[in-house]
């Protein structure tokens, strides 16, 4: 049997992923998380009498701590399987990818285990995040003058 014909057999017997449903769930839950973060931001502004920019950093830290604690407790992966990309796309997913890698390799030691593997998943985000920021920075400089 040639590969093309086999591909037809496979696609005929393979279910479609519920991309629309998954997208809606991720949009609603992820959007909800965004709205909650905004509330938290305003709360921090009021409570600590600080500007938005500084309160934003505090909000991010809060989310990272909550996500990492949930990862350590073994709750985060269960939530991810239910709400799809909603918790992976925000900063919570970034924190989770780092803490889950650290947990996974702790038995291989501090250097060759955690040290080598902690950015196993997050490395891509960091690398291309930095590269993207560099290019967008140049574009911004050209268009808006800094």
């Amino acid at each position: 049997m040639n590969k093309e014909k086999y591909k037809e057999i496979v696609s005929k017997n393979t279910p479609k992923e519920d991309t629309v449903k998954n997208g809606i769930i991720a949009f609603l839950v992820g959007g909800g998380l965004g709205a909650l973060s905004e509330l938290l931001l305003r709360l921090y502004c009021l409570l600590f009498d600080m500007p938005r920019k500084e309160a934003g950093v505090l909000v991010i830290l809060t989310l990272i701590v909550i996500a990492s604690v949930l990862t350590a407790l073994g709750v985060f992966d269960v939530l991810v399987s239910k709400v799809k990309a909603a918790l992976i796309i925000p900063i919570t997913g970034f924190a989770h990818s780092i803490s889950s890698s650290a947990l996974e390799y702790k038995h291989e030691g501090l250097v060759l285990g955690i040290g080598t593997n902690i950015f196993k998943l997050a490395g891509t985000v960091i690398l291309y995040g930095v590269v993207a920021v560099y290019f967008f920075g140049i574009i911004r400089l050209i268009i808006m003058g800094g």
């Binding site: 393979t14 279910p15 992966d77 991810v80 990818s97 996974e104 390799y105």
Partner: peptide
């Protein structure tokens, strides 16, 4: 999971297949 996929606690959403 650890060897072929992601860290065990990562739990990325899985495909139906």
């Amino acid at each position: 999971e650890k060897q072929f996929r992601n860290p065990t606690e990562y739990g990325a959403p899985k495909h139906k297949t």
